[in-house]
Design a protein around this nucleic acid. Structure first.
Lengths: 339, 339
DNA sequence: TTGAAAGCGATACCAG
DNA sequence: CTGGTATCGCTTTCAA
């Protein structure tokens, strides 16, 4: 059972390989009869074009690479899924790599991707990428689009969620519910995304004449654990009496950690304290109470990234910000009347 | 800035392309000096071998494909991660595709993968795969290993978790805690994996002389919602008095759904009822109380799959079952003394 | 409408 | 130890 090539098909159909290639690609004009015969031969031989050979000639691999910090993170998994779907629809394959935001891994994988001569690269990874990474990118001439993180001075298209707006909306949701004492939980402020969220938060307060209080900003660590600790710290700093009436957790994981702590302490959400998250990870709707949160338009992000990447436009430094959306569930409510 | 090829390097180093190829691949013997010169040229020109061309010649793409039902499912994301890591360590790329267990998608993607001439395929998808899929697989001669699902009569290696054993261990954990009335929540019994879990459960009961009670088997639907509904149904069928003292939920999602329902009903876990899950998804440790569960050796699965796939062994119909492990957290405890 | 032939960029055999 | 050359499987002029 040797591999069947385009020549086998050609022979079978009594034509030349060139002609077969033409019907395969829909290029050139072929008479309906020959075309039929060729299609038949393809079927009979179960011929499968060798994309490797085709890629070598056409300089097109029908593959894109996706660099994410960690595919295990639900957000990136969802992003990957969106890219995948779009890719499959266009008969493209997606190569995925988790980099853990480790420069070394990023560079190694980038190197591999470049050797594979991918048609494009979607980068959804660290803002701490080494200069090395950009140099390589630049001199390699691959098509690249950055996604999810707004990185300043990137000479490529950036597609991201408008976290400033998202935070603004989240905060405003709380304010409209009647909250005036609102704490914010954030991941480290070294992250641009954290800063953006803080900015949106502050702006919303300002817009509603609520004064911004430094003591209500809690930031440290990542993930659920951090949320738990931040809640703990908040409780320790303020007596249960002077607790804010609401918290804006800048990630759902933070929110879930806090929620867990409140559970343990018998603090009812949303009766005693409202809690709004950010990201709308799958878990958000599974916790109890289901978390009000801000959903990023993940699918949109993935789709757009793919489309821009494979579009005919020259890729330039443009930033596209997609609007997030507040998803109201049950962890936010009006504050209790002053007791 | 035209692409630099092996010929450019050769010219620059004053040798032939053949020689460059040799140092690139470590084949043949080259004098240290020429080797040095060539390496220098590679550096200076920032030459990146074209894997496409190489693959065409060598019939080796350094890429493997991974077919999963949904990368968005934490279990498969973890699996993908394990494969990725192993791949990166071997300088392989991983193409990932979520099929949603839809035969059409599976076949389309398989077709794409075959055209890409991948070195191997890891299939972690539906047991309901069409015959078509297998036919294609078989006549295409790709190396394939199945992972996670034990599919009968597959002429390829299967690497999976021993769910029979896992369920046995989970159930035994409950029994050793002192439980005698144990319910089991399952996904539909049309799934082989559900059947296996039920079998392990029954066997553990039997081993401890506990009689198996049909009325304590609840099965329907998938995911958190199903867990919630199953718990609801159980409560409806049995008064709060005659509730079993423990539940073995055959997936964490089921367990989490149940947990949520119990929260709402004010039923304390584990004081009133113990709950053990299965899978050890990330969420398991984040819920409250953190879920005792059975962890699949996901990383091991992924690693082994990759190694077997790229090993030199001819691939035959062998099934490797890896042992799962009970992770004891806080959702299980001894039953309350009879009140 | 069809086909001959020249590559795409690398590898491998075999000669020197 | 090094290099010429055929070749991997397909695409693409260009001529017929």
């Amino acid at each position: 059972m040797p591999k069947v090539t385009i020549y086998d098909v050609a022979k079978r159909a009594g034509v030349s390989a060139a002609t077969v290639s033409k019907v395969l690609n829909g290029t050139g004009r072929i008479s309906p009869e020959t075309s039929q015969r060729i299609r038949a031969a393809i079927e009979e031989l179960r011929y499968r074009p060798n994309l490797i050979a085709s890629a070598l000639k056409k300089h097109q691999t029908f593959s894109v690479g996706l660099l994410v910090p960690d595919i295990t993170n639900p957000f990136y998994a969802a992003l990957a899924r969106a890219v995948e779907d779009q890719a499959l629809a266009h008969n493209y394959a997606v190569l995925i790599c988790s980099t853990d935001n480790i420069a070394e891994r990023e560079e190694k994988q980038l190197e591999l991707f470049l050797r594979q001569r991918l048609d494009g690269l979607i980068v959804a990874t660290s803002e701490a990428m080494g200069q090395e990474f950009f140099n390589t990118l630049h001199q390699s001439q691959v098509r690249v689009v950055f996604i999810d993180r707004v990185i300043p001075n990137v000479p490529y298209p950036v597609i991201a969620t408008d976290h400033y707006l998202g935070s603004y909306l989240a905060t405003e949701h709380l304010i409209e519910l009647g909250h005036r004492e609102i704490a914010i939980f954030l991941e480290p402020l070294t992250l641009r995304s954290s800063l953006e969220r803080l900015r949106g938060f502050a702006k919303a307060l300002e817009a509603h004449q609520i004064k911004f209080d430094d003591h209500l900003v809690f930031s440290e660590g990542f993930g659920v654990e951090a949320g738990y600790e931040l809640a703990q710290r908040m409780l320790a700093q303020k007596g249960p009496q002077e607790l804010p009436t609401a918290i804006f957790a800048a990630t759902d994981q933070l929110a879930i950690g806090a929620l867990q702590y409140f559970h343990e302490k018998g603090i009812n959400v949303p009766d005693q304290i409202s809690l709004i998250g950010y990201d709308d990870i799958q878990m958000a709707k599974m916790v109890s109470p289901p978390l009000t949160t801000v959903a990023q338009p993940i699918t949109e992000l993935g789709h757009q990234a793919f489309e821009v990447l494979l579009g005919t436009q020259a890729l330039s430094a443009t930033t596209t910000l997609l609007p997030p959306r507040v998803i109201i569930r049950s962890s936010t409510a009006a504050p209790l009347p002053q007791s």
